[in-house]
Amino acid sequence: MLKIFGAVGSGSVPIEATLTLLGIPYEVIEAVTWEDEAARKRIETVNPLGQVPALVLPSGEIMTESAAILIYLADLYPQARLAPGLNDPARAQYLRWMTYVSAAIYAFAWIKDDAMRIAASKDDAPRVIDRVHDRIADCWRKMDEQITPSHYILGDELSVLNLYVTVISRFGPWRTRFYKSAPKMAEIVRQIDADPRLKEFWAKRFPFYEGWEQ
């Protein structure tokens, strides 16, 4: 069985969603690293950065970095068609946008968890978060302007890229701003929010509640 260090509403969720769609048994080791020092120390045994997600393969090998894990899982089970194949014309753009979401958007989570990591003072911390949110919204806008989606972002099949965008778009600056910045992807993530295959999963791992989009 695969083991994944993760947390509700965290970057482990798209990986857990992928495993759910693949029907692969897995165990989640809860590690709310941004609130719990003990959890951070626990995950440091597998990821020295002290961050989730971290995937423990049956061999004992460790994988970190959400985009890398998603790409690996999709390629490991090509029959599920959760990623364009190596010879698929969409493959290049798939890899481009997987890396883009990770590097240009999700990477800011490290600052949002604790603005004092880069803020000059506590008074400056709220302005840092505002600037981070502005940057994220602008990155979503630029991505949205450069894609030509069909049923999903890269075509008519659900891929891990769609799961990745759906989850990360729920982080600050929150969905309302995402909808405005990325209107083409907005329709896609709403569709994935409502996917019946993930209804029970979302309820457990990233539940919808009144006002969650704000």
Rank of each mutant, 00 (worst) to 15 (best):
D88A: 01
L70F: 05
R42F: 05
A68R: 11
Y179R: 03
D130Q: 15
P48Y: 09
Q51W: 07
A115K: 11
A194W: 01
A125F: 13
M1D: 13
R190T: 08
S181Y: 00
Q191V: 01
P149M: 09
L86M: 15
E157Q: 11
D124L: 13
R131H: 15
A182V: 03
M98C: 05
I69S: 08
E37L: 08
P149Y: 03
Y106M: 09
D88Q: 08
P84L: 01
D134P: 09
K112V: 15
A38T: 11
V165Y: 00
E44T: 12
R96E: 14
L22A: 11
L161F: 08
W97Y: 09
I153N: 08
I43E: 07
Y152Q: 05
P48N: 10
P126I: 13
L73F: 10
M185F: 08
Y209M: 01
T18G: 10
Q191Y: 06
T148Q: 14
Y106C: 08
P89M: 03
S181Q: 00
L22K: 11
I24M: 15
P53M: 09
G50Y: 10
K41Y: 04
L158W: 06
R42D: 07
K3P: 09
D123Y: 13
L82K: 02
P84E: 00
Q79K: 13
Y72C: 02
L49G: 13
V167M: 06
T33A: 10
A115P: 15
S121T: 15
A31H: 11
P149E: 09
P173A: 00
S66I: 09
I62R: 11
S121K: 13
A182G: 05
A104C: 06
E35D: 14
D193G: 04
D193A: 04
A31S: 13
D75C: 08
K3E: 14
Y72N: 07
L158Q: 04
I71K: 11
T148R: 14
G23F: 09
I168F: 05
D144T: 03
T176V: 04
K180E: 06
D144Q: 00
D88I: 02
Y100G: 02
W97P: 03
K180H: 03
V56I: 15
I168D: 01
L49T: 14
G11E: 13
D195Q: 03
E200F: 02
D193P: 02
G172I: 05
N47A: 09
A39F: 08
V32E: 14
S150Y: 10
S12I: 07
R197K: 00
R175P: 00
A80F: 05
E37Y: 05
A194V: 00
T148K: 14
T18R: 07
K199P: 01
G23N: 12
A39E: 02
R205P: 03
G11A: 14
L70S: 08
K112R: 15
G211Y: 02
R190I: 05
N162E: 03
F201G: 04
H133G: 15
V56K: 10
W34K: 14
E213V: 02
A17D: 02
I192D: 04
Y179Q: 01
V167D: 00
I62L: 10
A74M: 03
D138S: 07
S66C: 14
A38N: 12
K180P: 02
L161I: 07
G11D: 12
T148D: 15
A186D: 06
L19M: 12
